[in-house]
Write a protein that binds this DNA or RNA. Sequence first.
RNA 1: CGGGGAGUGGCUCAGCCUGGUAGAGCACCUGGUUCGGGACCAGGGGGUCGGAGGUUCAAAUCCUCUCUCCCCGACCA
Length: 590
Amino acid sequence: MHRWSQLFIPTLREAPADAEVASHKFLVRAGYVRQLAAGIYSYLFLGQRSFNKIIGIVREEMDRIGQEFYLPALHPRELWEASGRWSIMGENLFRLKDRKGAELCLAMTHEENMTEIARKELRSYKQLPQIWYQIQSKFRDEPRPKSGLLRVRQFLMKDSYSFDIDAAGLDVSYQKHRETYRRIFDRCGLKYLVIDAHSGAMGGSQSEEFMVYTPAGEDQVVSCANCKYAANLEKATSKLEPVEDLTAEGDGKPLEVHTPGQKTIEDVARFLGVSPKNKIKTLALMIDSKDPKSGRNTSRAVVVLMRGDHQLNEAKLATALAGKETRPMQEEEIRHLFGSPAGFLGPLGIKWAKNIADSNGPVLLVDKALEGRTNLIAGANKQDYHVKNITPGQNFQPTTYADLRAVASGDPCPNCGSPLRMDTAVEIGHIFKLGYKYSDSMGARVLDKNGKEVTPIMGSYGIGIERILTAAVEQSNDANGFWLPRQIAPFDIVVTPTNVADEKLKTTAEGIANSLESAGFDVLLDDRDERPGVKFKDADLVGIPFRVNVGKKVTEDRVEVVHRSTRQSQDVSIAAIVEYFQEVLGRAHE
RNA sequence: CGGGGAGUGGCUCAGCCUGGUAGAGCACCUGGUUCGGGACCAGGGGGUCGGAGGUUCAAAUCCUCUCUCCCCGACCA
């Protein structure tokens, strides 16, 4: 039996000064974790016990669809060169050298490692499909670790990888994961939602994230209360209300108008008596890159056109630019390209690249909301002048149209038109169809039925173990501490004799703890020689869902059961205590 | 990396402006009284004031450099 007096559960009366979010404060105060350095944490007894329960659930569910591996965290450079990620990952990848000077890295995910195994070992379609998973530490040199365990540099991830002969097979593997993830998060007692996501730096097509609403989160989730639509802001769209175009003025050709000192969209719209919806917003950006051969830095201009009242979403922009990062143009660069100061920029008179791959000329990305619009107003590339009668595709040729617009809260849902809402959330899992990115670049091939060599198609799926605990704490806490769902709590029940100096209370509490334990519950006996107030406060703090107070009422053969989540208590006869918990814990999660 | 803040016993913080004995509460140890919501009394232990250099008779305090941590922005489980 676990006796509190013998355990190391260093609870703190006050939260560390540098803890900001609830889960961070409470996990430290409750003695679950201690910080070692920025984004690096030690897990103590209670924390590890909770993680073990979470891992147990993950493993049990994953074993139903896949096979558990355990791969190294230390990888040779060559492995990452093979996929091209040695250079792509930049500073996020921890790198080191061994005694011989050979370069290594600490793995941030295991696509390369898994694909390497597949490449060497898989020969035939008969061996497919395969789903391989592991639960293991990942290392990422985050530019900014934060929020306790929410964003760290070393963390546990359940990562799995599927190999299929074709896209239909990948669909099956993907759906299996989707269902497994639902079971895992359900069993962990989390309230979560599944949303359409942006694939990020991993590449690939379809992708969904499992999110838990919390103000501590870092993601913006757009959702519709009416229908089931939910998406990451980076991916979300909304229905566009029809906009009335202006009628052509004069002969219908581009017409310069004098707009002295009118620089912002609002100023110009007001000055000309039109809506910002009829204006083109011109954003001037640059992509900086290093030429791998010469080592020289080169820059390429990217100009983005948005409807005047719309905002650019940078993740969508990055997708349109195949992941390349942009920065705002500097004053001289703007003058160089447009021949005009900022405030009067527009698309006319510049020879734009014909397509993204075309390196002749700057790129002109035009948001889809401008496609098909007519007689818009843009800057004239001339101080104090704007131009009317501009129609995209007619007066200028975009390099390409793309969805670049950020959805705003209140925009109409793309499915049903109801107002969309936006919430912050934390990502606890992510599943995506990788496609051929790794299998192709690393040369994994199998023979199909016809004896023809084909490239297996992959999927990749992750769960952040720590984030399950963190999300649970964020979801369920009050001024005194937090409570976990029984399935992931370090203990099911804490038995608290109010005074261990009283023999009767002490032995009764031990008896109760013993019988609960024999009945299969995970029990912690608070046998410390502390005043009741101290024990109650600690019990409320550490996340255990139920408490049995063994106090004065033992003379009436009764004890008090306290439900941490509701703070409600009720008297239960000592003889019936096991039955009571069998009944309560047999039901749904508390 | 840009911007903001903070480093003083285990924890939370005061002291710094205006240099001169390192302090409080909590925690810890001993003894006693107490015992249903973080008790009380008495005694006690514990600090290179993040580090280095400088100014000064004298530096936690002033100056320079540096390290670390937290928060706000671009990435992700």
